[in-house]
Amino acid sequence: MTETALTKATDEFGVVIEPTRGLAALQLRAVWQYRELLGFLVWRDVKVRYKQTALGVAWVVLQPLVNMLIFTLLFGVLLKVPSGGAPYPVFAFAALLPWNYFASSLNRASTSLIGSANLITKVYFPRLIVPLSGVLSGLVDFAVSFLLLGVLMLVYRLPLSWTMLWLPFFLLLAMVTALGFGLWLAALNVRFRDVNYLVPFLVQVWMYATPVIYGSTLIPERFRWLLALNPMTGVTEGFRWALLGSRLADAAAPGGLFYVSIGISLLVLISGMVFFRSTEKTFADVI
C-alpha cells in the first residue's frame, strides 16, 4: 500500500482499533462525547443510594450532624480544642462538610470500577466516566448538608461575607483531590482487591492528618509545611476561612502553602489519569 492510499484509508474509517503502545492519550474529548452517560450514571448513583431506605435523604444530614455533635462534645467542650474564636460546632462543621464529601467520593471512586464490572466487560465507553461519576454524585449530598450549615450559621447569627464566593473553588480542589487519588485507587483495585481494605483505613488516618477537628494553628509553626503537603488541608482551612474568616483570631487568607496543596492535587490528578488510561486496556480482561 502506498503512503497516500494508507492515509486515505485512515481518513475513510471512523475508528481504528489497534494495540496502544506507550502512554495512552487522555481522551478527554471522548469523555465529553459521553457526557450524557456520565449524567445518567450520576443520576443512577444518587437515585439508588436512598431507594428503599426509610429515612432517605435524611441520612445525608444526620451523619455529619451526629459527627459534629460528638466532635463538639469531645473536642469543643471536654478537650477545649481552640477554634480561633468561632463557635466550635460551626468551626467543626465547616471542615466536616468538605471532608465528608472528599471521603465518600474517594471511597466511591476507588470501588467504582469493581462495582461496574458488568458494564466494563460488556460495553465500550471511556472508563474515566466511572470514577468521575462517583466523585460527581457526592455533590448532591454535599449540597444537602450545605443547607444544614446555612441553618447552623443562622442559629449562631454569623454574617455572610464576600470570602464565601471562594467556596466553589475550595470545593473544586476537594473534587480534584478525590478524583486524582480515586483514579489511582480505582485502577489498582481492578488488579488488587487490597484497595477495598486500604481505603477505609486510609480515610481514617487521613482525617486525623487534616485539620478537621482542630485548626491548623494547633500545629507548631515549623511543622505546618507538613500539613500543606496534604491537599485536604488547603480545602478544610479554605472552607473555614471563607465561611468564618472575619471571626477567626488568626484569620490568614490562603497563602504560599496553599499553592503547594493545589500543585500536589493537580499532580496526583494528572498522574492518576495517565496511570488509569494506560491500565485501562486490561480492565475488561482482569476485572
Binding site: 484509508a9 471512523g14 475508528v15 481504528v16 482499533i17
Partner: peptide, 15 residues
C-alpha cells in the same frame, strides 16, 4: 470490535 478489550496485535477499522 466493540472496543471492550484491546487486540494484542493487528488492527481493525470500523466505518
Amino acid at each position: 470490535l466493540s472496543r471492550i478489550t484491546e487486540p494484542t496485535s493487528g488492527r481493525a477499522y470500523i466505518n
